[in-house]
Every structure is written in C-alpha cells, then in structure tokens.
C-alpha cells in the first residue's frame, strides 16, 4: 500500500511495496541533478579554455593589472551569504513558514542582484581601460568564463522571482516545494562554481 512521507528534499514521496513508483516531483529533482552534472562539464570546458589562454595577454593588461582584490572579495562573500540564505529559505519552506520563506528568498535574490551589479561594474571598469573581450586571448577567456557564471546567476534571480510570485499566490504546495528545492540546488551549485572562479581566476591571477 502507498505510504506518504516527506523526505529531506521537501518533496512528497511515495514508497510502495511494488517498486516502479516514482513521484513526479521527486523525479524532476533527480533529473535536475543530472542537469547540474552537464552544467558542470560546461564550466569545465570554459575553465580549460581560460587556463590554456591565461598567459596569452598579447602585451595587454594581465590579471595583476586588472583584478581588484576588494572587488572580488566582496563578490565572494556576497555569494557565499546568498547561498546560506537560500539554504534558510528551503529550511523554512520545509517548516511551512510562508512569510519567512518569502523573506529569505527575497534576501537571496537581492544578494544575487548585488553580486551581478558588482560584476557588471567590474566589467565596465575593465572595458573603460580598454581591457575588452577582443583585446587578447586571456581577456576573451576571462570575460566569457566569468560572464557565463554571471548569466547563470541572473537567470537564477529571474527564476527565484517567478517562484516568489507563485509562493505569494498559491502558498507552499508540493509543486512549489519541488521548484524551490531545484532552484536551491542551482544556486548552491553556482556558489561552488564561483568558489573555483575565485580560486583559479582571481586568487591565482594575483598570486
């Protein structure tokens, strides 16, 4: 017979004595993990390209001239904090606390916006000293790798916005719990990618 229980992913799951059971929501979370694996390979290829092209500055500005230590440190702490608040959002979602959920989700999205804003201003500053994407192989790799991450974050913000809207309209339903779980995984994943950007691009750039 079917037993309903809730698992740690906040998804209603059904276990049955006869195998072959899958809850639609849980199935989608599983698929999203696989998607994250593909996204990881995408970033792997971008990292590989960046590393291969890193020394090719063609006489133009290199990492040492461009990277601003306070800037990327701020970005790092902002993103780490947003990963935490995103975790809190899923936590309060499990507890069924809608208002706290709206709060933490908004904080996460705002921190994300701040992050994207800082990144954009960094890019603008670089471009203003003629460090553009077409200046050198190094800069092509840099803008594309960091920019792809930034685009992912921006998409995540839009996605959270859409979910916020749904939470306010429908409250916490199993479907919304699933969507939140997924966007949460996505967000933490982007945090991990950033940690590598921070390490490989920025820290190794200025060391």
């Amino acid at each position: 017979m079917a037993v309903t229980k809730e698992d740690a992913w906040g998804v209603q799951a059904r276990s049955q004595t006869t195998g072959s059971t899958h809850d639609e929501n849980e199935l989608r979370v599983a698929g999203f993990w696989v998607f994250l694996a593909t996204d990881m390979i995408l970033f792997a290829c971008l990292f590989a390209t960046y590393i291969v092209l890193r020394g090719n500055t063609d006489g133009g500005p290199g990492p040492r001239q461009l990277f601003d230590v306070t800037g990327f440190t701020e970005e790092t702490f902002i993103l780490l904090t947003s990963s935490f608040t995103c975790g809190l959002a899923t936590h309060v979602m499990h507890e069924g606390r809608r208002r706290a959920l709206v709060l933490w989700l908004s904080v996460t999205a705002l921190l994300g916006l701040l992050f994207v804003g800082l990144e954009v201003s960094e890019f603008v500053r670089d471009v203003s000293v003629s460090a553009t994407i077409s200046r050198s192989g190094f800069l092509s790799g840099f803008f594309t790798l960091v920019g792809t991450h930034g685009c992912h974050v921006s998409l995540g913000i839009l996605w959270m916005g859409s979910i916020l809207f749904q939470v306010m309209r429908q409250g916490i339903t199993p479907a919304i719990a699933r969507k939140l779980t997924i966007v949460g995984l996505y967000w933490h994943f982007l945090d991990v990618v950033w940690v590598f950007l921070f390490t490989v691009v920025y820290l190794m750039g200025v060391m």
Partner: peptide
C-alpha cells in the same frame, strides 16, 4: 555535448564579438 556547446559558443563569440579564442593573432589558440 556541453563541450560542443562551449566550442561552438566560443567560436560564435570570436565571430560576432571579435574575441580571440581561436584566432591566429592577439593570443588566440
């Protein structure tokens, strides 16, 4: 497939935005 996405994406960026991933000059490879 993600590797193809990246290869083609970077090629497109080279072509439309003048980047230097795969060009002969300016440090492309």
């Amino acid at each position: 497939f993600p590797a193809l996405t990246v290869a083609l994406g970077l090629l497109l960026i080279d072509r439309v935005a003048g980047a230097h991933f795969f060009s002969m000059d300016h440090g492309g490879n």
